[in-house]
Design a protein around this nucleic acid. Structure first.
Length: 800
RNA sequence: GCGGGUAUGGCGGAAUUGGUAGACGCGCCGGUCUUAGGAACCGGUGGUAAUCCGUGCAGGUUCAAAUCCUGUUACCCGCACCA
């Protein structure tokens, strides 16, 4: 058979669609499998080969699971709100709706062309008002349950995009969208109380099947630490300086305190601080730097002593000085620390520079040279003296603090509450109304969706004002409670909102009564297998787990965790081994590959490149190799003859079915394809195969290269589409050979191989080896010290 | 600095989890067919003339190590003055 992909690809894509081959059935009696890929952001650049790789894993598994009798939900959608589209729309003077529709159409065309078996009847678009109605609904539910609050805060602000960013969106001090430097700005911020769920998110990790490195990243991101809060009285005032420390056991070694430059205590006591001007100058200097610069730059410690305020170490009454320094952040802990220079390297560095006393309280290091952060016997520490373990010392110290009202045990998280508002047009409007009489009033549920006003001009406001603020017809409204004049919130939700629950909507995408029917959620949830990129492990995954836990708490979803299993895709690098990027000119467009080689070649190659979870560089010759393989598959139709079993191939077929099945389930696609290549080489060596064997072969290859397999299936006279066929079975007994090649070693060095019957006894095996013409001479005149026999593997004779 | 990962032919990568290193593919070499081939097909291909040497490097455990242990180097990813 000649393989003409140009005809074949389209033909089968149309037939599958006509037959509704990949639509998930809401038949709750069937075993279900919910395969989820991260829905793409429909950018103007179109799909790239990295997307294909990310989707292709569960694509293969979905096709495989369907053949194994599962009711598979493998949906697709578009995460379309966001700054990128908004900025592009502003630049091109178009409406983001039009831009989005156009991009989605382009993505859809590309995805269909690659032959993905998505359930297209369930497509969702986060910018669709029937979808974001429910995003707003969830927000209001959170508001109702006290998980939403508003606060003035210093926020990460991108002066280029004119928008507030979350910590997650401004990593490394750069705007996630335009990569400009992020600055700090005081603003009203809507927060989601994600920290309330920190412990449960940590605990939940114990019950899900994520790779260890993903769990670790989430654990680090949440960043839970345990320790104590300690209150240090400020001399001659009623005030106390509250600190957080993980090492309350070292309290006797605290010789000074450091507070963040923004700490409110400075303004409060400015009148009695002698060097207030110097302090203000230092503060101003710090304010110029963003948090990134303050934390990133490797530099000497700086700081200024506060003249006029003295703290008292509550454990021993010692008077100690207070400094301001930028190595203490207002955003972590209490914005103040007790400095124990003997046992903390940062405090040590600071103490050395400012000539402050260093008191050793744990034996084991040399405090003349460096801070000692290890374990050891407590000294110079009153009631703690003599204790040798950190654990015991900390427990005793906390007990003392609590009993004497000096402090108490406490925990801290690196994770912050989620700054949830943005000042862009292209996002879900936050459904809150400000009434001069009633205060903040939620938009009534029955008025959802709160639609984006349809306007021509969506230019960003200046200084961080939302574009919606200029639209009076939107802003001005009536208070739902008192009916008086009121104004709407004009900020919108961040990009991550819509993706925090989209997997729920797939279960019931057209429901207009609730976000999804509870019975359908009970059947489909949780997601059985979620695949995506490492870059979403700490943002999207944390956010969506948080929302899902909340929805579980209010009885909307049936399980606390949304994803049962998670896997990660490795990057597709450019041919030069570098990350693909427009500027490097090493980007591969899937359409170009499909144009030349067809969808099946692209699909097969992208999984054959290497270990699925690892980055691998693109190689055009490698693509050709896969095309060659598919041509050889098509060629099988020319040598197919008769029915039944070809004796010389029988075992190879059973072995290959076993190998391909297990490899697919373990995402070892490269070796699954290699096994099929090995089998086809054997078939061509045999020169023939039967009709049934060819059917088996194309069913095994079908999940990877479905178009050509369907075509062959039809060509050889089969009437049922492979999409509806079952997966081949194998006979375990026939995956094992009767005679096995066993290695012969003398003193651990390979000296030959020998064919032995499977499971041969040790005596037989050794005897056969000793009688072997190549081995016997090597044993001549030697003393045999030891004979090792691993059945079906190896014979090793140790001689002297 | 902390956490995670990786290192195997000219290249991408295999290796039943301690048991014949280099499966499969690319590339390369040789051949067949061809006016021609950067097409297709067939054969070969870790190094070395060879006893031998070979999985980043140096040790160790073992009859046996890519795989386990100790130390070390390089690169990649994430977090980062987190108190």
């Amino acid at each position: 058979m000649k393989y003409d992909f140009k005809v074949c690809d389209k033909k089968w894509q149309d037939r599958w669609e006509k037959a509704h081959a990949f639509e998930a059935k809401d038949d709750f009696s069937l075993p279900k499998f919910y395969a989820l890929i991260e829905f793409p952001y429909p950018s103007g650049a179109g799909l790239h080969v990295g997307h294909i790789k990310a989707f292709q894993s569960l694509e293969v598994i979905s096709r495989y699971k369907r053949m194994r009798g599962y009711n598979v939900l493998f949906p697709i959608g578009f995460d379309a709100f966001g700054l990128n589209t908004a900025n592009y729309a502003i630049k091109t003077r178009r409406h983001p709706r039009d831009v989005t529709d156009e991009n989605i159409a382009h993505f859809t065309q590309q995805l269909k062309r690659a032959g993905f078996s998505f359930d297209w009847s369930r497509v969702i678009d986060t910018t669709d008002e029937d979808y974001y109605k429910w995003t707003q609904w969830i927000f209001l539910k959170m508001f109702e349950h006290g998980l939403v609050y508003r606060d003035k805060a210093m926020v990460n602000f991108c002066p280029h995009c004119n928008v507030v960013l979350s910590n997650e969106d401004s990593q490394g001090g750069k705007c996630d969208v335009c990569h400009s430097d992020v600055i700090q700005k005081a603003k009203d911020v809507w927060y989601l109380r994600i920290t309330k769920y920190a412990d449960r998110m940590l605990e939940g990790l114990e019950h899900v099947d994520y790779p260890q490195n993903i769990k670790q990243q989430q654990i680090n991101w949440i960043g839970k630490s345990t320790g104590a809060y300690v209150n240090f009285p400020i001399k001659d005032t009623d005030d106390k300086l509250r600190v957080y420390t993980t090492r309350p056991d070292t309290l006797f070694g605290a010789t000074f305190m450091v507070i963040a430059p923004e700490h409110p205590i400075i303004d409060k006591y400015s009148a009695r601080i002698a060097n207030i001007e110097e302090l203000n100058a230092y503060k101003a200097e710090c304010a110029k730097k963003n948090e990134f610069e303050r934390t990133q730059l490797v530099k000497e410690k700086t700081g200024v002593k506060i003249e006029g305020l003295t703290a008292i170490n509550p454990i021993n009454g010692a008077e100690i000085p207070i400094y301001i320094a930028d190595y203490v952040m207002m955003s972590y802990g209490t914005g103040a620390i007790m400095a124990v220079p003997a046992h903390d390297s940062r405090d040590y560095e600071f103490a050395k520079k400012f000539g402050l006393p260093i008191i050793e309280v744990i034996k084991g290091g040399n405090i003349d040279e460096a801070a000692y952060e290890g374990d050891g016997e407590m000294i110079n520490s009153g009631f703690l003296n003599g204790i040798t373990t950190k654990k015991e010392a900390i427990e005793k110290a906390i007990k003392y603090l609590t009993e004497h009202g000096i402090g108490e045990a406490g925990v801290q998280y690196k994770m912050k509450d989620w700054a949830f508002n943005r000042q862009i047009y292209w996002g879900e409007p936050i459904p809150i109304i400000y009434c001069p009489k009633c205060g903040m009033v939620p938009v009534p549920y029955e008025e959802l969706p709160l639609r984006l006003p349809d306007v021509k001009n969506i230019e960003q406001g200046v200084g961080g004002e939302s574009p919606l603020a200029k639209i009076e017809s939107f802003v001005n409204c009536k208070c739902p409670q008192c009916g008086g004049d009121a104004k709407r919130e004009t900020d919108t939700m961040p990009q991550w909102a819509g993706s925090s629950w989209y997997f729920l909507r797939y279960c019931d995408p057209h429901n207009d009564k609730c976000l999804a029917d509870p019975e359908k959620l009970r059947y489909w949830m949780p997601v059985d297998w979620y695949n995506g990129g490492m870059e979403h492990v700490t943002r999207h995954m944390i956010y969506s787990r948080f929302w899902h836990m909340f929805l579980y708490d209010i009885g909307v979803v049936p399980t606390p965790e949304p994803y049962k299993k998670r896997s990660a895709v490795g990057l597709v690098l450019g041919a030069d081994g570098e990350k693909m990027s427009k500027s490097k000119g090493n980007v591969v467009d899937p359409n170009d590959v499909i144009e030349i080689y067809g969808a099946d070649t692209l699909r097969t190659y992208i999984l054959f490149m290497g270990d699925y979870g690892m980055a691998a560089p693109w190689n055009d010759s490698g693509v050709k190799g896969c095309r060659r393989f598919l041509d050889r598959v098509a060629g099988l139709t020319d040598i197919v003859k008769g029915h039944g079993v070809t004796p010389s191939l029988e075992r190879s077929f059973h072995k290959t079915i076993k190998k391909v099945s297990s490899d697919i389930e373990e995402m070892k696609f490269n070796t699954a394809i290699a096994a099929l290549m090995t089998l086809i080489n054997e078939i061509y060596d045999a020169g023939t195969l039967t009709h049934e064997e060819l059917v088996t072969f194309i069913r095994l290859l079908y999940p990877f290269a479905p178009h050509i397999c369907e075509e062959i299936n039809e060509y050889i006279g089969e009437t049922k589409m492979l999409a509806f066929c079952t997966w081949p079975e194998y006979d375990e007994a026939k995956t094992i050979d009767d005679t096995i090649e066993v290695a012969i070693q003398i003193n651990g060095k390979l000296r030959g191989t020998i064919m032995l019957p499977r499971g041969a006894s040790k005596d037989d095996a050794i005897a056969t080896v000793k009688a072997d013409g190549r081995i016997a001479p090597l044993l001549e005149g030697k003393t045999i010290v030891k004979e090792i026999y691993v059945p079906d593997r190896i014979v090793n004779i140790v001689v002297r």
